[in-house]
Structures are given as structure tokens and as C-alpha cells.
Design a binder for these strands. Structure first.
Length: 431
DNA sequence: TCTGGGGTCCTAGGACCC
DNA sequence: TCTGGGGTCCTAGGACCC
């Protein structure tokens, strides 16, 4: 019984989500920008055809935007997450084992489906269903390892003749395709490794597949060795249906405008701490270590640079936002320096324990809020639950005073689309 | 003027222990 | 005295992913 994986990948996902609610934009170039409207993170096929590059800062393409009337959107992650959930639910209704790999990609286990129908047709059915029910175009790649499934998907996207579905289970087809694919297009081979491989004369995926495993392991690492095996059809990376528990949580943002006062910085740090706490409780984890970092912009060469981080252990692992905020502000005071133009700050949580499992040391002093005494701890947890509930329904409905109200540092989002699917007031209307 | 955010894994090297 | 050698743990840095 051999492994068969499929990789389903949404085409130009964020741009496709935006287009879905704007039929008037069907044939127009669309780009979606990163937080702060900084650079391009998604492009519709029309925008790609105009030569707009991934990751380009938007100020560098103002001319193209005007000439070609490119429609620009700020990123609207609430919308994309909701559309993603619909796509994933549909896949789960069609296939028994699904690994949600990213917001717009999923691996499927098709090992036991060949008796039902040919793989090619299976892939076409999936593509058709997502297109018809959700309205999002996808490509499907099918192969005996995840790395080859990724490669099959690459071919499905790159070659229109495939109509978006490639069955790469035949070794002959694998070799023919790999001969055409540059080595740095392989999953797991980035720019750096690509360069080093090129220098060794390894230029195509086929070159890498035919490289001796021992040599690759010695020159690089077990990771690259595994890639070689996967390219040869040996499945080394299993399907992971249940997402692994997170080992760290990071919340950080660049500011919409530079921050120069401690109070503004404190507000932003509090805001990130609150969001990190929400994520932590959603993971049903408690954290023992918290890190705060602040920095100026590495791109502004005319101003003095400063970047620093401070990290500290809580006495007890906690998921209580009040404890986290108290520590975050204390750490911020340690690293704050006046007279800099700050561009970014962030909060990181690590050293996790499952909620309810953490055993405090018998000599540990108890945390002020979460465990001052039992009654206090219970009240505090109730408060967190209540805040999470309210904020799920009404984002930002309840917040800590430290997060601030005016938020002059908040990110820039000048081209935001409405919350079509997650706010009643912004549902699309049919006239 | 204007350059994202959030993750993971591996390795090398130092500290420390026996 | 000897300053070996193996094991473990931690951290920083590098590389990758979307």
C-alpha cells in the first residue's frame, strides 16, 4: 500500500477573496498589501501579467497602479480566514484525512481512493467543487510524497494545459517535470540553499533528485537529504491531521507612524500582549516566559538605530492577561530609551504548559493576580473567559485601559474592503 | 515620505557534569 | 596531580515555509 498525497492550493488566494465580492473587478488587475499597506503580498493573474512582483513596496509601483488602473486592497485577514475555513470544511467533507497546511493550502491523503475513481478525476472533482461551492479557484497536485505533490501543484499552476490538476504518480512524468524545474522552486529549498546547490552544479530538481544522499547530508543537513528522498518518491514527511501544539506565540506590528513617546509604546505593547494572551488561551496553554522587543526602522539610514529585547520568567505559568501585561510593561521599562523614532514592537510568549497541568514549585511565590488566592484566581479566569467571549462576537468590545483609545500608532489600512462575511452590517447586498 | 507578520526546524558551540 | 572524553542542556544563528 503506497502513499498518495494531494496538495490543494488556492490560486492568488487573497486577491481571489477580494474579487469574489466585487464582480466588477473580474477581469481587472488586483493586488493586496501587507499590514501597514507596505508591500504587495498577493496579485491577481492580471496583476502578475503586468509584471507586478511579489513583495515589492507599493510606493515603487505607483506609476503602474495609475496607468493600468490596478485595484489595491489593504489586507483583510478576517475575510481571508473565513473564506479559508469554508474551503477547508469543503475538503474535509470530501476526503477523510486533511492536513491544513496554511491559510490557502491543504494536503490530502488519497492513498486508498484509487479503487473509487482515478486520481486525475478525483483531483478534478475537488477543484470543481471548491470552485462551484465557494467560488475560489484552486490547483491540485497528486504524488507519492508531499514534496512531489508540491511540485505537481507547481506544474498545475504553471502550465495552463493541465487545467489545474496534475497527477504525478508516474516516475517517468516525475523525471520529465523535474528536468524543467529550477532547484530553488522545490519545497524546502530557498534562495540560500539554491545558490549553494547551483554552485555545485545542481540546477534542476532532477539534478538534486539524482544527487548522492550521503553527499547532500554531509554538505547540508538531514532536511535537504529528506528532500532528496522525497523527490525520489519515498515519503518521509507524514500527513499531520492534528496540528502540533504551538511552542511560541508572537504578536508584533510595525507602527502606522513612528512612535516617540513611552506612553504610546506602552499602549502598543499592551495591545500585543492582550492578543498574545487570547491566542494562548485558544491553544489551551499557559506560558512561563515573556519577551518584549522594540526597534527603530532599519530602512531609515539618516536616524540613529536602536533595537533591544528583554525577556523574563513568570513565577508561575499563566494565561492571565493581567499578569502578562504587568510583566510586559516592566520589561519595556528596562529597554526603553528616549529620543528614538521607533518603527515596531512585539511580544513573544514561550515555555508553554498545558492549562491545568503546570505544577508550581512548592517554594514558588504565587503570581499576584492569577493565583493570589483561590477565589481571586477563579474570578480572574472568569474575567478572561468573559472577555474572550465578548471579543469573539464584537472585536475590541472589551479591552484593558493600557491598550489606549486613540491608538495613534495603529497600522495603516487605507484600502480596506468591508467585512463581507463576518459582520452583519457589511454583508453584501443584492439589488 | 513609504519596505509584513508569524511560525518551525537544525546545527554549532559553550557550559556543565561525571 | 591529570586537563580526556562522552553526554546533556541551552542559546544564537541560519535556513526555510506561507
Amino acid at each position: 500500500m503506497s502513499n498518495i498525497f494531494a496538495l490543494v492550493d488556492c490560486n492568488n488566494f487573497y486577491a481571489s477573496c477580494e474579487k469574489l465580492f466585487r464582480p466588477d473587478l473580474r477581469h481587472r488587475p488586483v493586488v493586496v498589501l501587507s499590514n501597514n499597506d507596505g508591500c504587495v503580498i498577493a496579485r491577481s493573474k492580471e496583476a502578475k501579467a503586468l509584471g507586478i512582483k511579489m513583495g515589492v513596496p507599493v510606493f515603487k509601483i505607483q506609476q503602474e497602479i495609475r496607468t493600468h488602473k490596478i485595484k489595491v486592497f489593504s489586507s483583510n485577514f478576517a475575510l481571508y480566514a473565513d473564506m479559508s475555513a469554508r474551503v477547508m470544511n469543503t475538503l474535509e467533507s470530501m476526503v477523510p484525512s486533511v492536513e491544513i497546511y496554511s491559510i490557502d493550502e491543504a494536503f490530502l491523503d488519497l492513498s486508498n481512493t484509487q479503487a473509487i475513481m482515478p486520481l486525475q478525476q478525483y483531483g478534478e472533482n475537488i477543484k470543481q467543487a471548491i470552485g462551484q461551492w465557494i467560488g475560489i479557484p484552486v490547483c491540485v497536485g497528486i504524488a507519492p510524497s508531499k514534496t512531489l505533490a508540491k511540485l505537481a501543484n507547481y506544474a498545475a499552476k504553471k502550465f495552463p494545459a493541465t487545467q489545474g490538476v496534475v497527477d504525478l504518480t508516474s516516475p517517468q512524468r516525475q523525471r520529465r517535470l523535474m528536468e524543467l524545474v529550477p532547484v530553488e522552486e522545490i519545497w524546502g529549498i530557498g534562495r540560500r540553499l539554491g545558490k549553494r546547490l547551483n554552485a555545485m552544479g545542481v540546477r534542476t530538481a532532477l539534478d538534486l533528485a539524482d544527487s548522492p544522499e550521503k553527499l547532500i547530508r554531509k554538505q547540508f543537513s538531514v532536511v535537504v537529504e529528506r528532500t532528496v528522498r522525497e523527490l525520489n518518491g519515498e515519503s518521509c514527511i507524514a500527513l499531520e491531521e492534528i496540528p502540533a501544539a504551538k511552542k511560541q506565540i508572537v504578536c508584533s506590528r510595525s507602527f502606522g507612524q513612528r512612535v516617540t513617546t513611552f506612553n504610546q509604546m506602552r499602549e502598543a505593547v499592551c495591545e500585543h500582549t492582550v492578543r498574545a494572551g487570547e491566542k494562548l488561551r485558544k491553544e489551551r496553554q499557559q506560558a512561563k516566559v515573556l519577551t518584549v522587543f522594540i526597534r527603530t526602522s532599519p530602512f531609515s539610514t539618516d536616524r540613529p538605530q536602536y533595537s533591544n529585547a528583554a525577556s523574563s520568567e513568570l513565577v508561575n505559568a499563566t494565561d492571565n492577561t493581567r499578569d502578562l501585561i504587568a510583566l510586559a510593561v516592566k520589561l519595556l521599562k528596562q529597554i526603553w530609551r528616549d529620543d528614538y523614532h521607533y518603527a515596531k514592537c512585539g511580544v513573544m510568549l514561550s515555555d508553554f504548559y498545558a492549562s491545568g497541568i503546570y505544577q508550581p514549585d512548592i517554594f514558588d511565590v504565587l503570581n499576584t493576580h492569577s493565583a493570589g488566592n483561590r477565589g481571586d484566581a477563579a474570578r480572574s479566569n472568569k474575567l478572561m473567559n468573559l472577555m474572550d467571549q465578548v471579543n469573539r462576537k464584537n472585536k475590541g468590545g472589551l479591552f484593558f485601559a493600557g491598550q489606549g483609545i486613540k491608538k495613534q500608532w495603529a497600522i495603516k489600512r487605507e484600502h480596506l474592503s468591508p467585512a463581507y462575511t463576518t459582520r452583519w452590517g457589511e454583508l453584501p447586498k443584492v439589488r
